[in-house]
Design a protein around this nucleic acid. Sequence first.
DNA 1: CATACGTGGAT
DNA 2: TATCCAAGTAT
Length: 345
Amino acid sequence: MHTMRKSAYKSGVAGKSNALKSAARARRFRRRLLAWYYAHKRDLPWRENRDPYRIWLSEIMLQQTRVAAVVGYYAKFLQRFPSVEKLAAAREESVLAAWSGLGYYRRARMLHAAAKVLVKAHGGIFPNTSEDLKKLPGIGRYTAAAIASIAFAQPVAVVDGNVERVLQRIAGREISGEHLWEEAQAILDPSQPGEFNQAMMELGATVCVPGQPLCHSCPVHSSCATRGPRQSAGKALRLRKREISYMLRRKSGSFFLVQRAKNAKLMPGMWELPELADKQFGKSKALLVLRHSITVTDYRVKVVEDITPEVVLNPSTGKWIQEGRLAQLPLTGLTRKILRSLKML
DNA sequence: CATACGTGGAT
DNA sequence: TATCCAAGTAT
């Protein structure tokens, strides 16, 4: 049996929620939500068991990433790194290669770093409390609570984007910062925290969605103060626009690729097609033009055939890579997308 | 507390 | 086409 830390859930024990004003209402909410969850939950691969390694991996992959995008990566990653020991023993480049295309590559580096800590300092055994899990690289407050509740049944609530939206709609008002965590903890069913947390997120992801929520299908609509769209507090951040061109050099089954600087802020150490100097955009015939956005910039991307190499920005870091080796290399998502568009991957 | 970090599907 | 935004974390 694991040790509970008072600080981790003290605010919830009294069951004081502003969103659900009485204990009776909170109980009804829990009962209806969980009944709905058991009947409607999606059959997802990380719900097969409570293996903390599998739960952990799923939670890291799901950070800011849709379920649909994760499912395929999850299966392949588990096949490649079936245990925390295997992951810890791997080279970082292999881990990044398995992550290539999923985005937010820092997650993969921190996952790898955390695996090494787990094996070296914890004998490969996962801490079973939110507080201790949070000490590992890449595990913040949300992920720590998710793993602790799902894998170890620790009664700690999670707050992610889904839970935040559900709580706001239920309460019918803005809730922010620490108050969100207090509300979530107050509503949590402490007897089945992992299922309850997942039920809240499932509701937010499939019913209580942004925009037009499916209130007619909602198991807790009678508890809800909003029952409809919220006024969006839209903080539309403008994407910068930029043009960029890459060169495709191909020779007897090999591609010429360059490695990004190890200390680059964006995708350090990952491999991509050689980039051409800015002024080269539009000067030669495009093999392919596509759009691609990377965090805060919206790129118009042009891929040209092999032309004068002196306009290549960073040729010295380049290498000829055999076609068959591409899968083992940490390619950027954009490079992957380009090669796939050209049927070369 | 604001910002950067990737990508692709939904609206 | 343009914008939103998804099971967040680190700085």
